[in-house]
Write a protein that binds this DNA or RNA. Structure first.
Length: 420
RNA sequence: CGGGGUGUGGCGCAGUGGCUAGCGCGCCGCGUUCGGGACGCGGAGGUCGGAGGUUCAAGUCCUCUCACCCCGACCA
């Protein structure tokens, strides 16, 4: 993509109405645009990033047998009344409205009821189970206070998966499988080493649940982590009973701030019972279906990653979620320079490499500063100087290492980056 | 929802009740520049968040209200 064609722009200043680092950087670099508190638009570069994050999640969900669907955001009142969750006193996150005919509807903040209801049409026999269904969809939550940029929004992109199992054993096996898939997701996103499976309260579903918490000083949660055992305990369930249950020594725990980047629940038959989803077993008997739900806040993850992978010059995206692997900074408009930069851009594009071409007629300082603010992993400088040396100057965003490379060396490096 | 803070061109900001509301960035035109956000000249762009009030006179004072940020509560 050529920067002269990109409508979004970087700014010399960061917005004054944001304090969180993720929002300040993402807005300054032109990845997102603020619509209102807790509601953001994704601009071209931001859309690529969030899609890449969503894709990693999608791949791991598919790998454990998840089937992707897309459910409606508009929710009818009747279904939620069956489970007792329509009342604002029970769920205060609802955005509610009315149809033209006066009937009440809500904007989906979670989907246990509709997915369970939907499956009544398709699941009758033990032969139909288990089923694992997920979606990546915009959720609406009427947060009392939106904050921290993308980390706590009122409109958020979320992956929610629901499992439907024949019995406890089958459910528990999948719960474990999903846990491992989650850990893989965080590892691929580059935060595996600071993300902990964390024991947490189950809310109204069950007594306990598991969260995935990424250590961060901007986190809203306080957890106690056992780094050796690679597990955490949320402050809200930090008590002797839980410690004994997990077999952890209080001495080995460290108090940390963390961001909840995932949450998985065992739902039991709470919703299947309420909505009447059952199956017939081999012997012709009607049996309960056991459910689980598994959420990952995709937009929150983008905020966390922006926050985490950044320095005083701007964003520092990991290669697998960066909007492009390379940004070509063409310094000057001189004929040979332009020709070489154009050629390199076309070559990389034809190779299928994601590359941003800074073909703007602006000064060198601005191009280099922007390449850093945008956080593109590698900057390739093409200038009169590099043309004369018959080399490309390649700079690593993360550590500022700069190397002069021939065209072949550069292409080889790019090839190695894209195969990893 | 309680407490605190902030609203002035696209962005960042200044503005003691008193002239036609300024500055920097950005934007448009011309020229000189060209490896870390250059410079000269010319130009466009404003319901001062909104409503009401006080006053000869309000961006500035008062009341109400809306929005945004932070702390807290909340987060199934």
């Amino acid at each position: 993509m050529r920067l002269t064609n990109l409508f979004s722009k970087t700014s010399k200043t960061s917005p004054s109405d944001e304090t969180s680092r993720n929002a300040r950087l993402l807005i300054q670099a032109g990845y997102i645009h603020k619509e209102m508190a807790g509601v953001y638009d994704y601009l071209p570069l931001g859309k690529i990033v969030i899609d890449k994050i969503a894709n990693i999640v999608r791949e791991e969900m598919n790998a454990i047998g998840g089937q992707e669907i897309g459910m409606s955001a508009l929710q009818g009142k009747e279904l939620w009344e069956k489970s007792g969750r329509w009342d604002d006193k029970v769920v205060d996150a609802w955005f509610k409205s009315k149809l033209a005919n006066g009937s009440e509807v809500g904007l989906g903040w979670s989907h246990e009821e509709p997915i369970t209801n939907m499956l009544i049409s398709y699941i009758q026999s033990y032969k139909d189970l288990p089923v694992y269904v997920y979606q990546i969809q915009t959720k609406f939550r009427n947060e009392l206070r939106a904050k921290s940029g993308l980390m706590r929004g009122r409109e958020l992109l979320m992956k929610d998966m629901y499992s439907f199992s024949k019995d406890k054993d089958e459910h528990e096996k999948f719960y474990e499988t999903a846990t491992n898939a989650y850990l893989k997701v965080y590892k691929r996103l580059g935060v595996g080493d600071i993300t902990y499976k964390t024991f947490a309260s189950g809310g109204i579903f069950t007594k306990y649940s598991h969260e995935f918490q990424t250590l961060s000083e901007v986190g809203e949660d306080t957890i106690y982590v056992d780094k050796a055992k690679k597990l955490g305990i949320n402050k809200e369930v930090f008590n002797d009973e839980v410690l004994a249950h997990l077999g952890v020594n209080k001495e080995h725990l460290k108090k940390e701030r963390a961001v909840e980047v995932g949450n998985i629940f065992t739902l039991g038959s709470r919703y299947s019972d309420a909505l009447g989803l059952r199956y017939t077993d081999k012997d012709g008997a009607s049996r309960q279906i056991l459910m689980g739900c598994y959420g990952i806040g995709i937009s929150r993850l983008m905020g966390l990653l922006a926050e985490h992978f950044a320095d005083d010059k701007g964003l520092v995206w990991p290669i697998n979620i960066a909007p492009a692997i390379i940004i070509i900074a063409r310094l000057g408009e001189e004929n040979e320079t332009t020709k070489l930069a154009d050629e390199m851009y076309n070559h990389l594009t034809m190779m299928g490499v994601s590359v941003i071409y800074d073909d703007r007629d602006v000064r060198a300082g601005q191009k280099l500063t922007d390449s850093e603010l945008l956080g593109i992993p590698y900057t390739v400088v093409v200038s009169e100087k590099t043309v004369k040396n018959k080399k490309f100057e390649v700079r690593n965003r993360k550590n500022s290492d700069t190397k002069n490379m021939s065209k072949d060396e550069l292409l080889k490096m790019v090839a190695s980056l894209t195969t990893n």
